[in-house]
Computed example of a mutant assay.
Amino acid sequence: MMNEKKGRRPKIVVIGGGTGLPVILQGLKAKHAEVTAIVTVADDGGSSGSLRNYANVVPPGDIRNVLLSLSNIPHLQKDIFQYRFDTNDHFLAGHSIGNLIIAAMAEMRGSIFEAIQLLSKMMGVDGHVYPAAEEALILHAIFEDGTQVSGESKIAKESKKIERVFVTPINEDHEVKASRKVLSAIRDADLVVLGPGSLFTSILPNLMIGDLGKAVTETSAEVVYICNIMTQLGETENFSDADHVSVLHKHLEKKFIDTVLVNTEHVPEDYMNRERYDEYLVQVAHDFKGLSEEVPRVISNGFLKLRDEGVFHNGDKVVEELFKLAYESNRVRFAKI
């Protein structure tokens, strides 16, 4: 393959947030891709939300997990960075050390972007980590009944069908812009990957940043969507895989996704711990006819990994497919030059 012969690492941009993103990033790092992670900044729950409100900082939780997934520091240091104070610590209860460090460095540097770049050097990060925007954003949802709610953590609690989402800055007097280097990373990529992650609260908040979404729809890179394995309470109840893609296309008013990765392996009915993973409902239904109307290519495989009584993507299998697509995309792009 052209890239392999030249020895150039494939340039892969991954956009999202939540627990699924680090799994894919770890796999890409292990295979020596040139990785750029673009991380959502609309989280307002838990430790991230508390720090966001108290210290006026971009929510650090997803950023913390992404930095660790690409870091080369020893496991002990990673464990310290991830340590979360328990409920007996009163003021510090629920906060992770990593979140506090990110918030402190953002205050020191006067910029979340600069804080992340400095931390990336300190932590030996193999790749690039950028916040989707350099300010905290508010995620809004408009439901099919015409009602509206603001705040990422509140959306699923409404238990209504979402019509669309959008983002605004905390101070609604200016247009939201993508963070530095985000647009050039998308433009120069071989592959742009969306997900895995919550459709309305982890993926779309990034794409609803005007210039970022426009860059994704216009890039010459292959755009890949990793479809969720399970439907999600208050977000994607009764959704098929085609429904997920349709929502993305409707929000950006363009059929911009080139390839969808779909898991076809069955999730055992009694495997998942419903109390521990209470936001997940049932396995996403397949609608291959609907998918064929939305995207040029569907890659279906057993991308399932069962662990800790939960359902996850098999990072190794997903990354293997992503590498194939990245090399193919590179050949096509350079053939046009």
Rank of each mutant, 00 (worst) to 15 (best):
I226W: 10
C227Q: 12
N228H: 08
N228T: 15
I229Q: 01
I229R: 07
I229L: 12
I229E: 08
M230T: 14
M230Y: 10
T231F: 08
T231M: 05
T231H: 07
Q232S: 02
Q232E: 15
E235N: 11
T236L: 12
T236A: 11
T236V: 12
F239N: 09
F239P: 00
S240F: 07
A242C: 10
D243M: 08
H244N: 11
V245E: 07
V245W: 10
S246E: 15
S246Y: 10
V247Q: 10
L248P: 04
L248S: 00
K250Y: 11
K250F: 05
K250W: 02
H251D: 01
H251C: 09
E253T: 11
K254D: 13
K254I: 04
F256W: 15
F256S: 04
I257C: 09
I257N: 00
D258Q: 05
V260A: 00
L261V: 06
V262S: 00
N263A: 07
N263P: 02
N263Q: 02
N263W: 06
H266I: 12
H266Q: 14
P268A: 02
E269N: 10
D270C: 00
D270E: 12
Y271W: 06
M272H: 00
N273S: 06
N273Q: 05
E275C: 04
D278Q: 03
D278W: 10
E279P: 02
Y280P: 04
Y280N: 09
L281P: 03
Q283N: 13
V284C: 03
V284P: 02
A285L: 13
H286E: 07
D287N: 13
D287A: 14
D287M: 08
D287K: 07
F288Y: 15
K289L: 13
L291C: 11
S292A: 13
S292C: 09
E293H: 15
E293W: 08
